[in-house]
Design a binder for these strands. Structure first.
Lengths: 216, 216
DNA sequence: CAGATAAGCGGACTTGAGTCCACTTGCAAA
DNA sequence: TTTGCAAGTGGACTCAAGTCCGCTTATCTG
């Protein structure tokens, strides 16, 4: 059942299904490339929107027409890599399922991949998540959305397969298991606590493993 | 061993141990009262710093000398209630320990209390946490600090008491267990997912219960 | 091809955060 | 009591975010 996990992407389709005007599409590309270059040069958090607009040679109005804020811009920049990661994971899931690898092992594999993904994209993710989970806008495009769908899906399948007891609150558990990977906390653990990626993965593995036993 | 858990409070002692000048202390009090009133009237997120300064009849400079930002101001406003909560919990721990209540049950009790505490103070906590975990400044006064110390302490004691297997990464687990209570995620679960407090508590209970079994 | 028009564009403007600094005042030592 | 000065004060100023609105242009229709 892992095959119906969603792949989420922005694409360049407007909400109405209408595609952009040619000049607008060119500008979007220009802005994204300019932003990527500036981010690489000075670090994501040291680049402001006005600076991006100026470097791209467009007005602030244009920039904000395409991307309502820095979070959205950063989300667009991550889009390709997010889709790539999702595809890689889906391919692995398929392979593992063929090889009769238990769902819970697949979940551990996913979480481990996510730890590395989060680490690799921490600066962009910081901006993306600074917007907050609460904004309705674009919520289905937020990283948390597909991460949640994946974890939740794996939990459900694990229950169906008898790997987990029935009656677990998979909706809550999916959110809870993902919450230590929200960037704020993740970066805190990495930068202040000094945890290694392996240590974080192992910690999550322990949490996951525990679920197998406890129901009462 | 629960008796050496810390109680964290701001107090009105300067970092150098020097106490404030009388006029300054009066202003701090005035500012806190004004802010509290404005927050109650218009909601925490709808009140800006300039507004607080004006309503209190002081300049922005004065306001910012006392409180480096809105987060710090909100933290000061929560101070009393935080200390109260901590004391209530410590008292309960003592009582429970006398009655031979297992450490893990005490942890569940604490987490349940924390769920209610977080819910009750969500707006102020949102401001406090918007500062982010990463700022070194005042990190020991942040809610997460004493929450972490408490959970970590309970884990350790549980291990010493043989309730949990040795070798658990208690430092990681304390952070991880608390992370679904970071306001962003908590509010998301409450407001978007629509989870009840009971459901959240129960979910946490399941996570905690799992730890008893899994080590390998 | 011409005209209509929705989409796109740019930059001035508004708003709030936070800094700076010249001026004032409480307090303690002489 | 005077006086030195660290602490306190107020508000102008800087900086970035995000909005607004009058002008321009791609694209569609006749």
């Amino acid at each position: 059942m892992t095959s119906d996990l969603p792949i989420i992407s922005l694409g360049n389709i407007d909400e109405d299904g209408r595609s952009e005007r040619k000049d607008a599409a060119a500008n979007r590309k220009l802005i994204l490339e300019t932003a990527e270059a500036l981010f690489a040069e000075k670090g994501v958090e040291n680049v402001c929107m006005a600076e991006i607009a100026q470097a791209a040679g467009v007005g602030k109005g244009t920039l904000y027409r395409r991307f309502a804020n820095k979070a959205e811009l950063c989300l667009a920049l991550m889009d390709t890599q997010m889709v790539e990661f999702q595809n890689r994971m889906l391919a692995e899931f398929r392979k593992m399922t063929v090889n009769r690898v238990p769902q819970m092992a697949q979940l551990e594999f996913f979480m481990d991949g996510l730890v590395h993904f989060t680490d690799a994209h921490a600066p962009l993710l910081s901006e993306v998540q600074s917007e907050g989970l609460l904004q309705e806008r674009r919520s289905t495009e937020m990283p948390h959305f597909w991460q949640y769908m994946t974890v939740h899906g794996l939990f459900q399948t694990a229950i169906d397969a008898g790997e987990l007891p029935q009656g677990l609150d998979t909706e809550y558990l999916a959110d809870a298991l993902l919450s230590p990977l929200m960037v704020d906390i993740f970066r805190f653990q990495r930068e202040v606590r000094g945890f290694s990626l392996e240590r974080i993965s192992e910690g999550l593995r322990v949490l996951i493993a525990g679920l197998r036993h406890c129901v009462d």
